[in-house]
Simulated scan of single mutants.
Amino acid sequence: MAKWTTAEIPDQTGRVAVVTGANTGLGYETAAALAQRGAHVVLAVRNLDKGTEACNRISRAHPNARVSLQELDLTSLNSIRAAAEQLRAEHARIDLLINNAGVMYPPKSTTADGFELQFGTNHLGHFAFTGLLLERLLPVPGSRVVTVSSIGHRIRADIHFDDLQWQHRYNRVEAYGQSKLANLLFTYELQRRLAGRGTTIAVAAHPGGSNTELMRHLPRWAAIAYPAMAPLFQDAAMGALPTLRAAGDPQVRGGQYFGPGGFAQTRGYPTVVESSRKSHDAERQRRLWKVSEELTGVVYPL
């Protein structure tokens, strides 16, 4: 299928999809497309005002859409636990959990729990959120956990187990790379643990080069170079397609990774792509999983 688009998403009526960071950019486009296809979409967002505006935009564009709002701050384990508890109370089943929210290249800062902001938000926050909701996905045939990674998982990226929180030094590009590599290690290890259950799968995706709010923290050198690089980037609607294919294509298998099929995976229609050698390192996967359970206090029911 050379040009997979949202038209290929099967009817989602009766399905519940939770999308983190759904008030803008890739998350908004993902939520809107799933709602258009009939899913009850929960926009899990930190800013409720922006979330309400996003819900209204979807409802105006698709009057029959079912959308609701859930407050979620991935920089706070207390907020994550409260959000998961509320979602479990309101939904007997969850068909899709899309871990989309993220931060990229911020100045050095920490979450409410003292984690480096990118690692804490992009990986640990989603690790905890997924673990706390998994019991609502496991009984549901065809349920999926889709986690959004990045081309950045290849750029100066490793898991710095000796300094996961960048307390001794900080490089925003390397820290982002660590968090996005962690997204893939998490996906592959989760899939290994889910294998054999026959209901839930774990899949990953990346948007290529997408022009979204993530760009607001670009280092100065990158901001200067951005105008020359702009032709490599695509809009958020195209950038969301790999995530939507991972979530909606009936042919998807657990452990697959979707990204744009064009030049250097920066743009184009979604297809299965390869991730880095490090992302497939089983020892890194297991070690990161163990550390993540210890740091978050969330142990998966697997």
Rank of each mutant, 00 (worst) to 15 (best):
S210A: 15
I224M: 14
A236M: 04
Q178D: 14
S210H: 10
R220H: 12
D163N: 14
P207A: 05
L241Q: 04
D163A: 13
A225V: 06
P139Q: 00
V145P: 00
S150K: 04
S150M: 08
T212F: 02
D163Q: 07
I155Y: 03
K180H: 08
I151Y: 12
D163R: 10
M215D: 11
G131D: 00
G152T: 08
F161C: 09
E135K: 05
Y188L: 03
K180N: 09
A230F: 04
R216H: 15
T130S: 03
Q165L: 15
Y188W: 11
F233K: 00
K180G: 06
N171V: 10
I159T: 09
A128C: 02
D158F: 00
L194Q: 01
A223Y: 04
D162M: 11
L133R: 00
V140E: 11
R144A: 08
I224Q: 13
S150E: 10
T243R: 13
Y176R: 03
L133I: 04
G131H: 04
L214N: 06
P141G: 02
Y170D: 08
S149R: 03
F186W: 09
P139F: 02
A223G: 14
T199F: 09
I151C: 09
R220Y: 12
M229Q: 08
V173M: 12
Q234Y: 00
S210N: 06
A202F: 11
P141A: 03
P141C: 02
L241G: 03
A205M: 08
N171H: 11
S179A: 13
K180V: 06
P139I: 00
T147K: 02
D162C: 15
Q234P: 07
G152W: 09
W166G: 14
R136G: 07
A246G: 08
I224A: 15
G142K: 01
H160P: 04
M238F: 09
L244M: 13
L181N: 01
W221Y: 13
N211W: 00
L241Y: 10
L184H: 12
Q165C: 14
Q234G: 03
V145Q: 04
V173S: 05
T243N: 00
W166I: 13
Y176L: 06
P139R: 01
A182K: 05
L232Y: 03
L194W: 01
G239C: 10
A205V: 07
R197F: 11
P207K: 01
D249K: 00
P242T: 02
D163C: 02
R192I: 02
G209S: 08
H206N: 07
Q191G: 01
A236S: 10
H217A: 15
T200A: 15
F186V: 12
